[in-house]
């Protein structure tokens, strides 16, 4: 297939222009060109959401599935993968994981971990959305369910994933409306 130049920003770092075949899905570029293998290839059909990354634009952050979205769709865009959530020192060593990652660790949310990158990104998008538009406490349970529902976990870890995100949302200042 013909190639086209692709430039994109991943986890704050600009890549490209890279010579990328037309019609290649982003997950292949992440794995084979950028050596970012944390994003998981699951079903390859857009169903399991293990391949979800975050796209940041003027409207905020949102999820995109990289197994069914062409790499060139991300041309000029900013994305975050699971490798981009932790805080690192100047040498690149992890100094602290993100609050979502910590919540999953605290709740023993995952077993095999294959779906975890997708869950981390989904929960992060949810937390960032609630920071802009807090919801009533009574709505948290349903909102967490709606945000995580599309993500599949074959180790049946759903309860601990959901509890981790619900607790994180409830204890993080600014995500839940006071007196509501």
């Amino acid at each position: 297939m013909k190639t086209r130049p692709l430039t994109l920003t991943v986890n704050g770092r600009r890549h490209g222009p890279l010579d990328i075949p037309e019609g290649l899905m982003l997950i292949d570029v992440l794995h084979e060109w950028l050596d970012l293998t944390g994003t998981r290839f699951g079903c390859g059909q857009g169903v399991c959401r293990a391949c979800t990354v975050i796209v940041d634009d003027a409207d905020g952050s949102r999820e995109m599935r990289t197994c069914i979205t062409g790499a060139h769709w991300f041309d000029g865009k900013q994305i975050r993968t699971v490798e981009g959530h932790a805080t690192r020192d100047a040498a690149g060593a992890v100094t602290a994981v993100s609050p979502v990652q910590q919540a999953f660790l605290d709740h023993y949310s995952f077993q095999c971990g294959y779906c975890t990158p997708g869950f981390v990104n989904a929960a992060t998008v949810l937390v960032e959305r609630l920071a802009k538009a807090p919801i009533a406490k009574a709505d948290v349970e349903a909102m967490v369910g709606a945000a995580l529902e599309p993500h599949l976990c074959r180790c049946t870890g759903y309860v601990r994933y959901y509890e981790a995100v619900r607790d994180l949302v409830l204890r993080t200042p600014g995500l839940v409306k006071e007196n509501a």
Binding site: M1, E22, G23, M25, Q45, G46, C67, I68, T69, G70, H72, W73
Partner: peptide
């Protein structure tokens, strides 16, 4: 065509042949 390769071909295939039980 570029939109097709970016947003559709992941399931329907670059040649539009689809995937059994998927698309």
């Amino acid at each position: 065509r570029a939109h097709y390769l970016d947003l559709c071909a992941g399931c329907h295939g670059a040649e539009g042949r689809g995937v059994p039980h998927v698309a």
